[in-house]
């Protein structure tokens, strides 16, 4: 099942933990935003293979709802 993971809130990209081709399971952390001095992890909600990553570490000021990771 294809999944598109978008940012929940605006913030800076702190860590990106996956790259295209990686196998992920539901619940795996894909990337972590830094928002208001707090780490906000974003997780996969399905199993699959990462097909695209649209954000990069240290990217600043990413809006809420930005498409970040695609899983197929």
């Amino acid at each position: 099942m294809a999944e598109q993971v978008s940012t929940q809130v605006p913030g800076n990209v702190w860590k990106v933990l996956v790259k295209p081709g990686d196998a992920v399971k539901s619940g795996d952390t894909l990337f972590i935003l830094e928002v208001m001095k707090t780490e906000v992890p974003h997780e996969a909600s399905s199993d699959g293979i990462v097909s695209a990553v649209h954000i990069q570490e240290e990217q600043e000021g990413v809006d809420a709802g930005t498409l970040a990771v695609e899983i197929e």
């Binding site: 929940q8 809130v9 605006p10 913030g11 928002v35 208001m36 707090t38 906000v40």
Partner: peptide
């Protein structure tokens, strides 16, 4: 705090 306790205290700018 500007945050959402129901969503594990997700920050809310």
């Amino acid at each position: 705090y500007a945050e959402n306790p129901a969503k594990m205290f997700l920050p809310s700018p």
